[in-house]
């Protein structure tokens, strides 16, 4: 995976079913089947594919003084100033410097496209309903950006890339709207 995907627009233009990825996202099992999996520390996370517009190799990021702590800074994406958040900071994970595998996902959050820094991008998974446990598995204490757990049964089947999951892996499914809320 990774390099073929990098800088290639996954969901070009507005024709993508982004609308479906909005408020109904967490509930709609019909539409939200495809997820983009990525790595953050020792866990694998995934965002609905429909919400991810693009994957970038991180350009130099300009820090913004006085910004909230989890804001890494701003970049220019073809002339548009885009805010980048460090997902590690947002999820209260231990910080780590950028590596060669680091990527910025451009994620659609209703009123703004936000850059999301992740450690490494894996691949797209298509999850059948029985492969997903929805958020109530964690009880009512779970954060509202926590959408559920994905268990791709034959993870290696679809993975031709280098970083496929092994059979015991789980995907932490994230809901982009509450995740990226200010």
């Amino acid at each position: 995976m990774s390099d073929e995907l990098v800088s290639k627009t996954l969901m070009p233009g507005s024709s993508s079913p982004v609308v479906a990825g909005r408020s109904e996202l967490a509930k709609s099992t019909e539409v939200t089947r495809e997820f983009l999996a990525f790595e953050l520390g020792s866990e694998n996370y995934a965002l609905p594919l429909a919400s991810v517009r693009e994957i970038l190799k991180p350009p130099p990021v300009t820090g913004v003084p006085r910004a909230p702590r989890d804001v890494l800074g701003i970049i220019s994406v073809r002339g548009r100033i885009t805010t980048v958040i460090d997902l590690r900071r947002r999820l209260n994970l231990e910080e780590r410097p950028l590596s060669k595998a680091s990527r910025i996902l451009l994620v659609d959050r209703e009123d703004e496209i936000i850059g999301v820094l992740v450690d490494r991008v894996h691949q797209v998974y298509r999850l059948e309903p029985e492969e997903v446990e929805y958020s109530n598995v964690m009880g009512s204490d779970a954060s509202d950006h926590f959408m559920g757990i994905g268990r791709p049964r034959s993870a290696s089947r679809s993975a031709r890339g280098a970083h496929a999951l092994d059979d015991h892996s789980i995907l932490i499914l994230l809901d982009p709207i509450p995740l990226l809320r200010r």
Partner: peptide, 10 residues
């Protein structure tokens, strides 16, 4: 160019 809505309060 304006900063995005998420940095509006800065």
């Amino acid at each position: 160019k304006s900063l995005g809505p998420s940095l509006q309060k800065v």
